[in-house]
Amino acid sequence: MSAAASRAAEAARAGIRLPGMAQSFGIPLLLFAAIVALLEWLKDSGHLPITVPAPSQVAEAFLQSYGDLLYHMGPTVLGAVLGYALAISIALALAAIATSVRGAEPPIFRIGVAIDSIPLIALTPILMVWVGNGLSSRIAIATIASLFPLIVGSIRGFRAVEQNASELFHVLSASRGQAMVKLALPSALPYLFAAFKIAAPLAILGSLIAEWVSADRGLGIMMVYALFSFNVPLAWLTILAVCALAALAYGLVAGIERLVVGAGSGERLHSDG
């Protein structure tokens, strides 16, 4: 390709690509505003069922009860964070066994699949009999809900070291510690963070499920009360709050990933051809 043609191609690509901020915030915000306006109009003109409130009603519910919302958010988040941390510890330990003990990976994987296929909503009441209905049940369900992707990601990450790279470290006579810090850990991080990102919202949902079944405080029980008292705007408010929490959890982990792993590999500067 000639220099002029490649510059033209570059310009064409740049034209389609939006500036970073507009891309990550502008378009979603615009879409959100459009949906809000549409819902508001549909509700006004009577096209929406009674179970779907107008966005303005939800906003009103927020203004009335944001204090309650914050009060109930605390235990949900605490349960999710602790369950998430516990799930990460278990997953890392299981992955370490799976990748270091010959033949251990298939059974560990199967246990993971079995745990993941448990219907949590049915398990939770039984679990409450065993561990009680306080923080411990939130932690237990959040752990179970987020465990499987963490196991898969950790095993994949621990196996991520390439054969040649490991031979290179051998030729360089690197110590086990050096191989761990300079090779195994950096190789594993992308896979670990992929799993961490998927698992974070799952932990929030796990904590929520525990509260549905029984809790004195928490977003889950607030949701259940709103539903039983047929306070539709409040029910939707709690749903939105959970969505926001899950998205925040994902974003937080993604932010940490950017800090730890760096901003990616960048564009190709040169090619042979």
Partner: peptide, 23 residues
């Protein structure tokens, strides 16, 4: 090695420096 087997998270300089760090 047949493929360069560079560590993708390190710069060119840091890749060349790796053996010195390890030794």
């Amino acid at each position: 090695f047949q493929d360069a087997s560079l560590l993708p998270w390190r710069s060119v300089l840091d890749n060349v420096r790796l053996p010195i760090e390890i030794a």
